[in-house]
């Protein structure tokens, strides 16, 4: 298998605090990988460093988009990272509340389109088609995720589980090859979690996606992931298949001992 994301020695300092301390992670194409660790272990910081929201203090982040050559991500702005084909969701839902569900997804298409002010004003045929295609594509994404019944609803009025799914839909609309999900199941009921499980597997199999997720729901992580990376206090302490991780004494000490608390 070819590596699609290669992170070497990623370090992030906030003042004197080392939120991330020399993390190495390799994600392979077509994997569902999970990043787990106790609260405050630096998982979200890891996402933020990769997606350009924070600039890491040290280390290398490299991606190899399918069919393209390897390139570095460090120092790129978040929007450029997204253009390269990494899309993410947020732990605390960050939808565009004033917009409809469809428009939220259309925002995801933004970086793949190029209409400017002039195009918006004059609306030549090429722009009209682009806009039409954008609407159609966005609707298609909604159908895939199963949110088409909410199309013209305002995003803020959606039920909680649907909002989480909309985050995924929005990320999907940016045409990524690697999807980063930050606690996609947080706050969901068992039924919704089950659907999410199916959705993620479906996405990998049918959309040719590689997925890296942060999750606290151990049942979901164990059933879903091909590979699990465990971090604690900003350091990577273990890596392996679900079985390997489950039986790793260090992980049990740092994390799985508290499973009941976190799940």
């Amino acid at each position: 298998m070819e590596p699609i994301l290669n992170v070497k020695n990623l370090t992030m300092n906030f003042g004197g605090l080392k939120a991330l301390d020399g993390i190495d992670i390799v994600i392979e194409k077509g994997q569902i990988a999970a990043l787990i660790g106790p609260n405050g272990a630096g998982k979200t910081t890891f996402f933020n460093c990769i997606t350009g929201i924070y600039e890491p203090s040290e280390g290398k982040v490299e991606i190899t988009p399918p069919g393209k050559s390897t390139q570095g991500l460090k120092g790129l702005k978040p929007n450029h990272v997204t253009e390269k084909g990494l899309a993410r969701t947020f732990q605390n839902i960050r939808l565009f509340e004033g917009m409809t569900v469809l428009e939220n997804v259309m925002i995801g298409r933004h970086c793949r389109l190029n209409a400017g002010i002039f195009g918006a004003l004059v609306q030549p045929p090429s722009q009209k088609n682009e806009e039409k295609k954008c609407v159609a594509d966005s609707y298609e994404v909604l159908e895939k995720i199963g949110l088409e019944k909410y199309v013209n609803e305002k995003a803020i009025n959606l039920p909680y589980g649907a909002q989480r799914r909309l985050e995924i839909a929005r990320a999907l609309a940016t045409n990524p090859f690697l999807l980063l999900l930050d606690e996609p199941a947080a706050g969901m009921n068992p039924q919704e979690t089950k659907e999410l499980d199916d959705l993620i597997i479906w996405l990998r199999d049918n959309e040719d996606l590689t997925i890296l997720l942060i999750e606290h729901d151990m049942k979901l992580v164990m059933s879903l992931s091909d590979r699990i990376h465990v971090v604690d206090y900003g350091k990577k302490i273990a890596e392996g298949t679900p079985e390997e991780v489950k039986s790793n004494p260090q992980v049990i000490k740092a994390y799985l001992g508290d499973e009941s608390e976190d799940a």
């Binding site: 960050r94 917009m99 918006a120």
Partner: peptide
């Protein structure tokens, strides 16, 4: 496309950047 980007930016700058 531009107008939607403005509104998105108003609602959430960080999510907006993450959307490219």
């Amino acid at each position: 496309r531009i107008g939607r980007a403005w509104i998105a930016l108003r609602d959430d700058e960080i999510a907006c950047q993450a959307m490219g």
